[in-house]
Amino acid sequence: MRRGLPLRAVVPNAVTALALCSGLTGIRFAIASQWETAVLMILLAGVLDGLDGRIARFLRGESRFGAELDSLSDAISFGVSPALILYLWSLMLVPRLGWLVALIFAVFCALRLARFNAQIDLTEQPHKSAGFLTGVPAPAGAMLAMLPLYLWFWSGEPVFASPWLVAPWVALVALLMVSSVATFSWSSLRLRRNIRFEALAGLVLVGAAVIAAPWQMLSLVCVAYAATIPFSYRAYAKIRRLRASSPPAP
């Protein structure tokens, strides 16, 4: 009988645990009112979350244990931690409504991840087979929810810290996470051969912009991602109509 985890599965699971630690550390900095560092911890958790799966596939260290650990880490790093950071930063000014919105965001993130785990073994997944995701993924949801923080960092405008602006925005992002709206999947995007060099140059420019003006660039990325949602919804609706009109396979 196989006992424990294979050695090749330890590294990706360690990266997942580091992502969990990073997300929890964001709460610690938020308690100390070190808002920029708190947000950076969530962003670091997002980077580590993107790496653990790739490392697991490279080392052939995928496991059911790793998948469950990844979901638990995501629920805390991209659900609980951003909710508490936003509550301590702005939403606590309206305690009842603010705490309700923070709870909704954290719980809806957990529900999204539970739905993802429940569908992992299903053979019939219309969104996935068409190259789309169902709803906004948890890391993107956390990044979107913190958009008012980014705007507040570089503009200094107190309006962005108003709970009457932050609360409806966070609630909207929470609804997008648990919705059935089709969103673009980055892993399914394929670049044409004749624009791959231009795409690489664009990524370099984006990386340089993030280093030079991180909060302005993150604000722009969030707005751009939110703007793609109507287009992804429309694109999937077109694919669904084509599937409905095509004759069934013999």
Rank of each mutant, 00 (worst) to 15 (best):
I104H: 03
Y150R: 03
G131Y: 12
A140R: 08
L133Q: 07
L86D: 02
L86E: 01
P82F: 04
V80I: 13
D70Q: 10
F153K: 10
L149D: 01
V181M: 04
P95G: 06
V107D: 12
L175W: 10
D121W: 01
G79Y: 08
W89H: 11
D70P: 04
F160M: 01
G135M: 04
L147G: 01
V94Q: 14
V166F: 00
G66R: 14
A75Y: 11
R115A: 13
L88K: 04
V94K: 11
D74N: 13
V101E: 03
L147P: 07
A138W: 09
T134Q: 15
C109D: 01
V80S: 00
L122V: 03
D74L: 09
F105M: 01
D74A: 04
S187W: 02
L175K: 01
A110L: 15
V170I: 11
G141T: 04
A83C: 11
I85C: 05
M146C: 10
G135P: 07
P137Y: 08
A83I: 10
R96M: 03
L133W: 09
L113R: 05
L84F: 10
S180H: 13
E157Y: 11
P163L: 10
C109F: 02
L69T: 03
G131H: 09
A75M: 12
P158T: 05
W89S: 05
S180Q: 15
I120C: 09
L72I: 08
A130E: 12
S162V: 03
P163Q: 06
T134N: 08
I104F: 12
L103F: 06
W89Y: 06
V166Y: 00
W99Q: 09
A138F: 12
L113H: 03
S155E: 11
L147K: 02
P163M: 08
D121A: 11
W169I: 05
G141N: 05
